[in-house]
Simulated scan of single mutants.
Amino acid sequence: LLARCEADGIRARRIPVDYASHSAHVELIQRELLELLEPVRPRTAQVPFYSSVTGRGVDGSELDAGYWYANLRQTVDFHGATRALLDDGFDVFVESSAHPVLTASVEESVEE
């Protein structure tokens, strides 16, 4: 698949994980994730927080272990969150993940 994508000019890379994010595979590690994330204590955000889980702005108080599990397990609405930011007048974006894999998605959403 990677070779075919490269030949077709499609940017693709293998991500070194042992489960498929946003799929039923995450259910295999649900208990472990919820236990590891249990100490997370959400609070209301001081800056606007737009969720790729909901596709809209959230106040931050819902960002508990269950939220972060849902973020990894379910299909996310990254495009919806980006569009909501644009609709609310934001035009500067910070991609804060371990790898800037979503930068292209932000650019595509903005261009659309």
Rank of each mutant, 00 (worst) to 15 (best):
A7D: 11
V101H: 02
V47K: 00
S21D: 05
L37N: 02
G9Q: 11
S52M: 04
R56H: 09
Q46P: 00
I29Y: 10
A81F: 09
E108P: 00
S105K: 06
E38H: 12
P16H: 12
W68F: 11
A65Q: 03
L86S: 05
D59G: 01
S97T: 07
E35H: 08
D8I: 00
D8N: 14
F49G: 00
R43G: 15
L72V: 05
E95W: 07
V58Y: 08
E107G: 03
A45S: 13
R41D: 11
G80N: 01
Q30D: 06
S21N: 02
Y69K: 02
V17A: 10
V58K: 03
S105N: 09
L28F: 09
G66F: 05
G55V: 14
A7H: 12
N71P: 01
Y69G: 06
D8G: 14
A20Y: 01
E6R: 15
A20I: 15
C5A: 14
E32D: 15
H25I: 04
V101I: 06
V94L: 14
T75S: 12
D59V: 00
V110H: 02
G57C: 09
A70R: 14
S105D: 13
R4L: 13
V53M: 04
A7C: 08
S109F: 05
L102R: 08
D59N: 08
P16C: 09
E112L: 11
V94E: 08
L1C: 05
G9H: 07
A24T: 10
Y67A: 02
A3P: 12
L85R: 05
V94W: 09
Y50Q: 00
L1D: 07
S52I: 03
V94C: 12
R4D: 14
G89A: 04
V101S: 10
A3W: 03
L1P: 12
I10Y: 07
A104V: 12
D8S: 12
P42V: 11
V106A: 00
D77S: 08
P39L: 03
A24N: 12
G57T: 00
F90A: 01
D18C: 04
R31V: 06
L102F: 14
G89Y: 03
E27K: 01
A24W: 07
A84F: 03
V92F: 14
V101F: 13
A70T: 08
V17Q: 13
R41C: 10
L34M: 10
G9N: 04
H99A: 15
Y19E: 10
S97R: 04
L36A: 15
S96D: 07
D59E: 05
V53G: 03
P48E: 06
G57Q: 15
R41W: 06
I15G: 00
H79R: 03
R43D: 12
Q46Y: 05
T54K: 07
F93N: 08
S21E: 00
L1M: 09
Q30E: 15
G9K: 12
R83W: 02
S96T: 13
E27C: 01
G60Q: 03
G89K: 01
Y50A: 07
Y50L: 07
V110A: 10
V110E: 01
R56S: 15
C5N: 07
D91V: 00
R83P: 03
Y69D: 10
E111S: 11
E62P: 01
R31M: 02
F49K: 06
